[in-house]
Computed example of a mutant assay.
Amino acid sequence: MSFAAKTCTLLATSAYAVVLSSTAAYGAIGDQDNKPPSSTPSGGASGNTLNAKATATQIKVTQVSGASGTSPKALAPVDPNWKPPACWYEPVATPQALKAAVDRLKKNPNTDLVPVTPTLSWGEDLMVDHYEKGKAENGSGDGYENYNLGKDGMFWRGVINQDRADDPASYDCEDTLFWQNARTLPANKHAPTPDVLAAYAYDKIKVPGTEIEAKPATRSTVNLPTWVWLDRGTFKEVKVRAELAAAGVWAETTAKPVALHLNPGTGDAETYPASGDCTINNDGSIGTPYAKGDAGKAPQCGITYRRATDGKPYRLSASITWRISWQGSGGAKADLPDGTFETTQDMDVQEIQSVNR
């Protein structure tokens, strides 16, 4: 269903005051004077109030290792159909925080609304009926008695991946604010399981830019090898951790560099090795540096151009392949599609002129 159609449906089926917003730019839920106990996770960015913005995830992302150099870059998955999650559900309110929000509605019914999905907010009547008095929502589904105060758990709501807010799939997490017992996850395909967090972490991985060393650097000669290498230790594995502490779920996604692929920018060239895939050595280096006296020798990693450029340089591209795997809470682990980062540089190729006598 399109977002426009979904909006019309919501307006048609609810007899209560609602507000809909494609940006979900709502205010905060909760009351600083009604803080939940410090031992109970409150949800929200501040720890004391519930941030109601639909893109304000509580997932904490930490780079554990790698990519400490300058100009880190994002990875591009080799599978063009792979995408990080567009939305998921998160715990967003304790019973105390939700009660405080509705108490504020009672004081300001014309100004304050409570977002119960990423696109829908409810006013005082529906919030009181459904979460305080236990009435069913629109004639279906059970309500909640007195906000489930005294129970061990939290109310959950959909959250949109802010990097994919334009994706229609970001509005698939539209279940109304619902209760989930502590230390359990919703039986829903959009639950924040370790694999969802792993995919979210993948999208946050930053790797060092690919800056190859070449000899000759920008001007080669027909039929003479161009050596390509990277210094040792340049490429090390990168690990990113995504954790949703309020749900007790985490995942660490690791990107390990495995190969450098050379594309000479023309079919009139030979690569070393023939596949163009230069493996990464155990010390993190690629290829071997050019040394005096190596002219004419076949490099471990490099290119031999067979035809000179004619006013327009070849576009030499170098891309690093990163193998992606993850492990997470509960012993879960798996692989994700490889990622690549590519850089290009101009390469002029000259032809040596000789005179026969």
Rank of each mutant, 00 (worst) to 15 (best):
residue 248 G to K: 10
residue 330 G to C: 07
residue 74 A to V: 10
residue 175 D to W: 07
residue 140 S to E: 13
residue 92 V to H: 10
residue 237 E to Q: 14
residue 180 Q to S: 07
residue 61 V to Y: 14
residue 297 K to P: 03
residue 205 I to H: 08
residue 292 K to W: 02
residue 186 P to D: 04
residue 14 S to A: 01
residue 213 E to H: 14
residue 177 L to K: 04
residue 301 C to V: 02
residue 339 G to Y: 14
residue 34 N to L: 12
residue 49 T to N: 11
residue 260 L to R: 04
residue 134 G to I: 13
residue 194 P to G: 05
residue 100 A to S: 11
residue 120 L to I: 00
residue 21 S to Y: 01
residue 239 K to W: 11
residue 193 T to C: 00
residue 44 G to N: 14
residue 355 V to L: 15
residue 349 V to L: 06
residue 175 D to E: 14
residue 328 G to P: 14
residue 149 L to S: 08
residue 305 Y to V: 00
residue 293 G to D: 00
residue 138 N to W: 15
residue 312 K to D: 03
residue 224 L to P: 05
residue 77 P to R: 02
residue 92 V to Q: 07
residue 32 Q to H: 10
residue 9 T to K: 08
residue 106 K to V: 06
residue 309 T to V: 00
residue 157 R to N: 10
residue 219 R to Y: 03
residue 270 E to K: 02
residue 247 A to L: 12
residue 82 W to I: 01
residue 91 P to N: 11
residue 27 G to W: 03
residue 267 G to V: 00
residue 100 A to N: 09
residue 80 P to K: 04
residue 251 A to C: 06
residue 353 Q to A: 09
residue 106 K to F: 04
residue 84 P to R: 02
residue 193 T to Q: 05
residue 13 T to L: 07
residue 88 W to V: 08
residue 239 K to E: 12
residue 230 L to M: 13
residue 163 D to E: 13
residue 239 K to T: 15
residue 317 S to A: 05
residue 224 L to W: 15
residue 104 R to T: 11
residue 310 D to R: 08
residue 277 D to W: 14
residue 87 C to G: 00
residue 345 Q to P: 08
residue 68 S to L: 11
residue 259 A to W: 13
residue 206 K to I: 02
residue 221 T to L: 09
residue 317 S to K: 04
residue 141 G to N: 14
residue 300 Q to S: 03
residue 199 A to I: 02
residue 326 W to F: 13
residue 223 N to A: 10
residue 159 V to H: 04
residue 296 G to F: 02
residue 308 A to D: 01
residue 34 N to Q: 13
residue 88 W to T: 07
residue 105 L to G: 00
residue 133 K to P: 08
residue 45 A to T: 15
residue 7 T to W: 13
residue 81 N to D: 12
residue 290 Y to M: 03
residue 89 Y to M: 01
residue 46 S to D: 15
residue 238 V to A: 05
residue 179 W to A: 00
residue 121 S to N: 01
residue 73 K to I: 11
residue 52 A to T: 06
residue 188 N to P: 10
residue 5 A to Q: 08
residue 87 C to E: 03
residue 353 Q to C: 05
residue 245 A to E: 11
residue 186 P to S: 04
residue 175 D to Y: 11
residue 347 M to Y: 10
residue 87 C to K: 03
residue 24 A to I: 01
residue 168 P to L: 03
residue 295 A to N: 09
residue 77 P to Q: 07
residue 149 L to H: 06
residue 153 G to Q: 09
residue 258 V to D: 09
residue 116 V to M: 09
residue 159 V to P: 05
residue 326 W to H: 08
residue 215 K to M: 11
residue 276 G to M: 00
residue 324 I to Y: 10
residue 219 R to H: 05
residue 210 T to R: 05
residue 299 P to Y: 03
residue 143 G to W: 15
residue 26 Y to W: 15
residue 233 G to A: 03
residue 86 A to K: 06
residue 26 Y to R: 10
residue 227 W to E: 02
residue 355 V to N: 12
residue 69 G to Q: 11
residue 318 A to C: 08
residue 179 W to G: 00
residue 229 W to A: 04
residue 116 V to T: 11
residue 310 D to T: 15
residue 300 Q to C: 00
residue 133 K to Y: 12
residue 117 T to C: 07
residue 307 R to E: 03
residue 104 R to E: 08
residue 136 A to F: 12
residue 36 P to T: 08
residue 233 G to Q: 00
residue 236 K to H: 13
residue 200 Y to H: 07
